[in-house]
Simulated scan of single mutants.
Amino acid sequence: MIPKSLNGINEIPTEIIGLVKESVINTFASIIGSEPSYIEQNGQAKSLNGIIGNIAVFNQQHTLSLMIVIPRETALKLSEVFIGAEIPFESDDMGDLVGEISNILAGDVAANIETVGFRGQSSLPTATRGSDLTLFMPSKPPTEKMKFVGPSGEFWVNMALSESR
């Protein structure tokens, strides 16, 4: 359950983390045909050459921001599995693909977290592509970083829970 106010809360409730993790595994399993494995992370992630999908599930009280971090090699393999052909990494189509994956994930997350009383809708997805990207999550709201590895490669999902403004 999410408290009405996040003042003094420094961690995302474990129920929400578990439901988001379940959504990530289900979403990527439906795309790649097998479940990715959750990997415990130690320390900071290194800089990235890849693409990031951003989307949020929100209501009047709270916003759950999701950042899907996909290295270049994983993105290329995902494109091959998702549409049957490798999309050039630098193309607009790659941004569309990551936006669509973000949208699918947010839909599953929204359905899952509704079971603990968080009824919300998804924002529009955005994608950012680049090299030597360093990821920063907001420092004030509670955050969680999750790493996954599957047949298409590794990827991360970072999330932040904040009060809606």
Rank of each mutant, 00 (worst) to 15 (best):
M1A: 08
S5T: 14
S5W: 06
L6D: 11
E11H: 13
T14V: 14
T14E: 13
E15R: 14
I17T: 12
G18S: 11
L19I: 01
E22K: 09
E22N: 10
V24T: 05
V24H: 00
T27Q: 04
F28K: 01
F28C: 05
F28Y: 00
S30Y: 01
I32P: 12
I32T: 15
G33V: 01
S34L: 07
Q41H: 07
Q41Y: 00
K46F: 11
S47N: 11
L48E: 04
N49E: 13
I51P: 04
N54V: 06
V57I: 04
V57T: 02
N59T: 00
N59A: 01
Q60V: 07
Q61N: 15
Q61K: 15
H62E: 05
H62Q: 00
T63R: 12
S65A: 13
M67Q: 12
P71D: 00
P71M: 02
E73S: 11
T74F: 04
T74L: 02
L76I: 07
G84E: 06
E86D: 02
E86F: 12
E86L: 00
I87P: 02
P88Y: 05
D93G: 08
G95W: 02
D96F: 04
L97R: 03
I101V: 11
I104Y: 05
V109G: 00
V109Q: 01
A111E: 10
N112E: 10
N112K: 11
Q121E: 09
S122I: 11
S123R: 13
S123F: 12
T126R: 08
T126H: 08
T128D: 14
G130V: 03
D132F: 12
D132L: 12
D132K: 14
L135P: 10
L135D: 07
P138F: 01
S139M: 09
S139H: 12
S139A: 13
T143A: 04
K145M: 15
M146A: 03
K147S: 13
K147F: 11
F148T: 03
V149W: 06
V149C: 14
G150T: 05
N158M: 15
M159Q: 06
M159L: 15
E163A: 09
E163W: 03
E163Q: 13
R165Y: 11
